[in-house]
Design a protein around this nucleic acid. Structure first.
Lengths: 124, 124
DNA sequence: TTTCATGTAACAATAGATGTTATGATTCGA
DNA sequence: TCGAATCATAACATCTATTGTTACATGAAA
């Protein structure tokens, strides 16, 4: 599939697609080819690659949008608040990543097939 | 405590402090007074107000920094990905908020006192 | 050799958060 | 009553991260 086609699916730009897919290539999950019949293809085993691995491949972007204002504040009150929140955040992150680790691409394929069959049925 | 003083503690601006504290006032957690001896004071019971309530008072800002690109995508693949992630996100969010619900301001005060005592001891 | 595709750098646009300035309203003490 | 201290709020500015765009180079295949 070309970057152009993927970009259209996502409503974005081919260069943006290449930017992100590049990380997946570095992780060995996809490969890219140039020229005619070029584009992106999945090279990894769909039953092995998980959402967790994708997250890791994409550079482990920050999971939470809220959190500490300062990492090591001099204010003791802020220190207490940070400490109280950090435990909770760590546990929530662990839970999320564990869930992600149990979703393989093959699971997504299976779900997609179900949706696709449903869509075809609707057209009758 | 004045907005000015709080702003200095946080390394920010008094107006920014008022903006945020205004939400806490609406929730009845703090009150503000003008003029001499004015400023902010906590009106709620410290053993009752939790981090969860603060989160709610602040308008329940989005917890996650990652997630769906599109809420209701027409792309079936994206739909499958979204569905797989949403469950995990929901559970992680529930866990986080439950943790927050079990941290009262009084707990923060206790932790602060411990830190404060420790700081004084260090000075010897 | 032409066409189609990625690779990549540089730059632009956008949006959201944060910071700032300015002005008005209120309270309290002298 | 006056003046200083303080919040209330609107308007505007700045910052930052993401996302989008343009341009050009590189490589592969018909």
């Amino acid at each position: 599939m070309t970057s152009e086609a993927i970009a259209q699916c996502l409503g974005t730009n081919p260069v943006v697609v290449r930017r992100t897919m590049g990380f997946l290539r570095e992780a060995g999950i996809v490969s890219s080819g140039r020229g005619h019949a070029g584009g992106w293809r999945i090279t990894a085993d769909l039953t092995v690659v998980t959402l967790q691995q994708l997250h890791e491949a994409l550079g482990e972007p920050a999971i939470f949008a809220i959190g500490n204002r300062t990492e090591n504040p001099s204010c003791l009150v802020e220190q207490s608040v940070n400490a109280a929140m950090e435990d909770a955040f760590a546990d929530a992150e662990a839970l999320l990543l564990d869930r992600f680790a149990h979703v393989a691409l093959a699971d997504l394929v299976a779900d997609f097939k179900r949706r696709h069959a449903e869509t075809l049925k609707q057209k009758d």
